[in-house]
């Protein structure tokens, strides 16, 4: 039987090598591409020809887009609306990757359970925040780390801490998502193996497998919730970091 970590194994589906670098098309890339396809269908059906009176597909897209815009309005203010497409793209990508990975039977792979992917997404956020911050405020952007109204020594100390905390943001952002996804899938897998091992008790087959199966059903519901919540948290933190860059506190 496959171990609980085996589901995270990267398999090369089509080896590609460019200039000595391995850029193979893997199962991770496949599921990211499927996520891209799902989002594309959702958006092209719902939002390619928007009407003043929306149909159902458009209403669904608007619901999500409005959610993102409200989040930016609340956390950044009116200037945040310009970044609504970016935050929307990040939110949808994380959400769809998380949800697709929960589909049973089809051998689904969760790209967001890999720290490489989550770190890449976090770096998109981090680089955007840095570009926006320096673009709008120049070197004054560093005043984000300086505490107001303190003396030089304490200020310098806090500055170092704040700066390190700023630099650690992409890692915390990446690890939060990756750890949540990994833990959930490991848990599902562990209880899945319990179903098999308890259910194959020879004297009384199947019966004892029911308990871990029930647990797995409940866990699946929980994991669906976590998939949505973690996508929301990722987008929310991205908008909070954007707020720092735009408004400097």
């Amino acid at each position: 039987m496959a171990g609980p970590m085996e589901q995270f194994e990267i398999e090369t589906l089509h080896p590609i090598e460019v200039g000595g670098y391995d850029l193979s098309f893997t199962n991770s890339a496949l599921w990211m591409a499927i996520a891209l396809g799902v989002i594309s269908v959702f958006l092209f059906i719902g939002a390619s020809r928007p009407q003043l009176v929306p149909n159902r597909w458009q209403a669904a897209v608007e619901y999500v887009y409005d959610f993102v815009r409200k989040m930016l309005d609340d956390n950044v203010g009116p200037e945040g609306r310009r970044f609504a497409p970016l935050i929307f793209a990040i939110f949808m990508f994380v959400l769809v990757c998380n949800l697709l990975g929960l589909i049973p039977w089809v051998g689904a792979f969760t790209p967001t359970s890999h720290v490489a992917v989550t770190l890449g997404l976090a770096c998109i956020v981090f680089i955007t925040v840095c570009i926006v911050g320096f673009w709008r405020h120049g070197l004054h952007f560093f005043s984000l780390f300086w505490p107001h109204g303190s003396n030089i020594a304490l200020g310098a100390f806090v500055f170092v801490i704040e700066f390190l905390s700023f630099l650690s943001r992409p890692f915390t952002l990446a690890i939060r998502l990756f750890a949540n996804m990994t833990a959930g899938h490991v848990l599902l897998k562990v209880f899945g193996t319990f179903v098999v091992s308890l259910g194959s008790f020879q004297a009384l087959p199947y019966v004892f497998g029911i308990v871990p199966l029930g647990v797995n059903v409940a866990l699946s519901a929980l994991e669906l919730l976590i998939a949505v919540v973690q996508a929301y948290v990722f987008a929310l933190l991205a908008s909070l970091y954007l707020n720092d860059a735009i408004n400097l506190h």
Binding site: L23, A29, L36, L43, M92, G120
Partner: peptide, 23 residues
């Protein structure tokens, strides 16, 4: 590297081709 490369490619398509064209 392969994951980051494909993430970059797919996310660029998602943002510039899909999202930017519709939202």
């Amino acid at each position: 590297l392969p994951q980051l490369a494909w993430l970059g490619f797919i996310f660029a398509v998602l943002y510039f081709v899909v999202v930017r064209a519709t939202l």
